[in-house]
């Protein structure tokens, strides 16, 4: 896979603390990382290890307690609404829980229209917009004609999640933070969608940061893998290195816990 050496997004000593006093939680604990342009990075870790929190910080949706984020070599500055908007043109996300990602009072068309508008397509004709939305949906195995004019609660979980992915095909961001983007999609569609995403990546040189618990998936798609435990990266490196030859005990445990079909799955270890 092509790997240009430009660092696209990096962090130094990134820390997030929620609450204070007795309820103080150290969600992300002084992590350092550099994600390269056009790379697919997976962040794997158990639930509560701070993956979503890290993604929210990278997106600028939650305050950073300590540390710095560098975007394309410069210190990230999102202090004003305008700068934030500019940043979000480049950095987009797929959120973890599709059920709470939608405004239930808006038809789903708005979600896609917003993306077109954001990419300067406000003035396009209706037909043009319709065409663009249809195309984006086809990338994720959905038929737009069947979905248009529906409300989010009229879709299945997987359909909502796929629609979130469809946004990416309209937005074509430089960086995509995908938080468990395929957790509710069947294995078959998942393969198609991942292929489409990878194709988009090679077309526009998008950096994809995959947050997942599915180690097989992480291995399948990513160039490098970060393993996260209790807010810290315990292991990182190329996919082959980390998943096939794990060094950290935690990584070994994770890989051991993956449900198996060709051999006995040992339930006694938890």
């Amino acid at each position: 896979m092509v790997k240009s050496k430009d660092v696209c997004l990096s962090g130094a000593g990134l820390t997030k603390v929620y609450g204070f006093g007795r309820t103080r939680t150290l969600a992300v604990d002084h992590v350092d990382f550099s994600f390269y342009e056009g790379e697919v990075v997976s962040i794997v870790g158990e639930s509560g290890s701070g993956k979503t929190t890290l993604a929210k910080m990278l997106l600028g949706l939650t305050n950073v307690t300590e540390g710095e984020i560098y975007f394309q070599g410069e210190k990230r500055d999102i202090s004003t609404q305008r700068k934030r908007r500019e940043y979000w043109k480049n950095t987009q996300a797929i959120f973890q829980d599709p059920f709470s990602s939608y405004n239930i009072f808006n038809k789903i068309d708005t979600v896609l229209l917003d993306c077109i508008n954001m990419r300067g397509g406000r003035g396009f004709s209706r037909e043009r917009k319709f065409e663009m939305m249809t195309e984006a949906c086809s990338f994720v195995n959905l038929k737009f004609e069947e979905l248009t004019n529906k409300y989010p609660f009229e879709l299945s979980g997987g359909q909502m999640q796929r629609l979130m992915i469809a946004r990416v095909f309209l937005l074509k961001p430089k960086i995509l933070l995908a938080d468990e983007p395929t957790s509710m999609i069947d294995a078959c569609s998942r393969a198609t969608i991942l292929d489409m995403l990878m194709q988009l990546r090679s077309e526009i040189g998008m950096t994809i940061i995959f947050i997942t618990h599915d180690i097989g998936l992480a291995y399948y798609v990513s160039d490098s893998v970060y393993i996260m435990e209790h807010g810290k990266f315990v292991e990182s490196g190329s996919a082959d290195q980390v998943i096939l030859h794990p060094k950290a005990a935690y990584t070994q445990r994770l890989i051991n816990d993956v449900p198996k079909i060709y051999e006995e799955w040992d339930l006694s270890t938890v």
Binding site: W88, Q92, S101, V111
Partner: peptide
């Protein structure tokens, strides 16, 4: 997350509050 999504879509504070 739906508020976050709206932010990511570039909406203004007023729009987000109202919608």
């Amino acid at each position: 997350d739906h508020v976050n999504l709206s932010k990511l879509s570039g909406h203004s504070i007023v729009y987000i509050i109202l919608n």
